[in-house]
Amino acid sequence: MTDPQHLPYRPCTGIMLLNPEGKVFVGRRIDTVAEAWQMPQGGIDEGEEPKDAALRELEEEIGTCKAEIIDEIPEWLYYDLPEHLIGKVWKGRYRGQKMKWFALRFLGRDEDINLETDHQEFNQWKWVDMHRLPDMIVPFKRDLYRTLVARFNHLIRKD
């Protein structure tokens, strides 16, 4: 097995989709038996701009791109895979992901969300309070999700 320190990070985009009430979209992953919920995310194709990848991934994963970008984290955020997953995901080519994160305001209706896409990754979805996100994600992504909550917290409506 290749030393993980010599593997690159996979370029990826992540989407925090907020509904008008300030709740965040999460989907339950279909590829695990654990209660693994996450926000939409996915790889950035070669030559693709991160913003374009975010909108493409949103449509591929939840069946709609009825949303507008309202904020972004300008720098890349990173996470490492746990040792037992290195060599098993992404054909063993990456040690983790470097992610460009965007916050989007959902402009559609709940009925516009359709998880049965060509690239289905989720089998359930729901809107949740932003502060709950770190407790819903797999442990190796929790620090990343804490950062996202801290950085996008100002987007929650405080009426």
Score class of each variant (00 low, 15 high):
Lys66Asp: 02
Gly63Ala: 00
Arg28Thr: 06
Trp37Leu: 02
Lys66Glu: 06
Ala67Cys: 06
Lys100Cys: 04
Lys23Cys: 09
Val26Tyr: 08
Asp112Glu: 06
Trp101Pro: 12
Gly47Tyr: 08
Arg95Gly: 03
Ile73Val: 11
Ala103Arg: 06
Leu107Asn: 12
Gly96Thr: 07
Lys51His: 12
Leu18Pro: 05
Leu7Pro: 05
Leu55Lys: 12
Ala54Arg: 05
Met39Ala: 12
Lys23Gly: 06
Gly108Pro: 08
Gln41Leu: 13
Ile44Tyr: 03
Asp118Lys: 15
Gln97Lys: 14
Gln41Ile: 04
Leu85Glu: 11
Glu35Arg: 11
Leu104Met: 15
Trp101Glu: 07
Asp110Trp: 05
Asp112Trp: 00
Ile69His: 11
Asp45Met: 13
Leu133Gly: 09
Glu49Asn: 14
Gly42Met: 02
Asn114His: 13
Thr13Glu: 09
Gly96Pro: 09
Glu21Leu: 12
His84Thr: 07
Lys100Val: 03
Cys65Asn: 15
Arg10Trp: 07
Gly87His: 04
Cys12Asn: 14
Gly92Asp: 01
Asp110Tyr: 02
Gly87Ile: 10
Glu75Ser: 03
Trp127Thr: 06
Phe122Ser: 06
Pro82Ser: 03
Pro4Arg: 03
Tyr79Pro: 02
Thr13Ser: 11
Met39Cys: 15
Met99Pro: 00
Val24Gln: 01
Glu57Leu: 11
Leu55Gly: 04
Phe122Asp: 00
Val89Lys: 13
Gln124Ile: 08
Glu83Thr: 10
Phe102Ser: 05
Pro40Asp: 03
Leu81Phe: 13
Ile73Cys: 03
Val33Pro: 10
Gly87Val: 07
Ala103Asn: 03
Ile73Trp: 01
Arg10Val: 05
Ile69Tyr: 04
Arg28Asn: 10
Pro82Glu: 02
Asn114Gln: 13
Leu55Arg: 13
Glu21Ile: 04
Gln120Thr: 12
Lys91Asn: 14
Pro4Glu: 04
Ile15Pro: 07
Glu111Cys: 04
His119Ala: 12
Ile86Phe: 00
Ala36Asn: 13
Arg93Ile: 06
Lys88Asn: 12
Pro8Arg: 05
Gly47Val: 01
Val128Asp: 00
Gly63Thr: 01
Trp125Leu: 00
Gln124Cys: 03
Ala54Gly: 08
Trp125Phe: 13
Leu104Phe: 06
Glu35Gly: 11
Leu17Met: 10
Glu21Asn: 12
Ile62Trp: 02
Asp129Pro: 07
Trp101Gly: 01
Val33Met: 09
Arg132Ala: 14
Thr13Arg: 06
Gly108Met: 00
Thr117Met: 00
Pro50Gly: 08
Leu17Asn: 05
Arg95Ser: 04
Pro8Trp: 10
Leu107Arg: 14
Trp37Phe: 10
Met99Val: 15
Arg93Cys: 09
Glu49Gly: 06
Ile62Ser: 07
Glu60Asp: 14
Arg93Gly: 08
Pro8Val: 01
Phe122Cys: 04
Leu85Trp: 09
Lys98Ile: 07
Arg28Ser: 02
Glu49Pro: 10
Glu68Met: 13
Leu58Val: 01
Arg109Ile: 07
Lys126Val: 02
Ile113Ser: 00
Gly92Met: 07
Trp37Ile: 01
Asp52Ile: 14
Asp129Gly: 10
